[in-house]
Amino acid sequence: MSGRQAIAGVLAVLALLGEAGTARAQSLEYQIKANYLVRFAAFVEWPPSAFASAAAPLNLCVAGRDPFGQALDAAAAAQTAHGRRIALRRLGERDRTGGCHIVYLGRGAQPPENGAAVLVVSDSAVTTQRAMIHFVIATNRVRFHIDKTAAEQARLQISSRLLNLALDVRGRAR
């Protein structure tokens, strides 16, 4: 876990760094996003049918172009959720999302078919098309929107603690 870095509010500092720091700032942004992807696993509950067995790992898939590089490996290393090991799978542009529990839609990726118990994460840096969780940058921080309805259609339960942190939640009973 020492390899993982979670730094709150660091983007506010990065804004002052100018052009020279842009690359580093971008890398920091994806480190955070990688972290968040791993942590989502803890705040979401999948139906038991989503796993082949009790010992089966939780598969975190990156579809399309992978923007994280080693940051995601570092974030997921030895990490667990609901007692399951988190396994990384990089799908590329054409691979199917079958067997995935979390799918990050990178550039050029196709959203998986409806009905599968898969948490689909989209990124405003890639598309404006919002999936169940949609990363955005707000006040220089990595935040996200949540589409509860879509998650529920996929038989996923998103923890209220996660919902509380979303910029907005679609389908939340108010």
């Binding site: 709150a8 942590r39 990595v142």
Partner: peptide, 8 residues
């Protein structure tokens, strides 16, 4: 949640 997602 706040701790997980850096919401101080």
């Amino acid at each position: 949640g706040a701790l997980a997602f850096d919401d101080a």
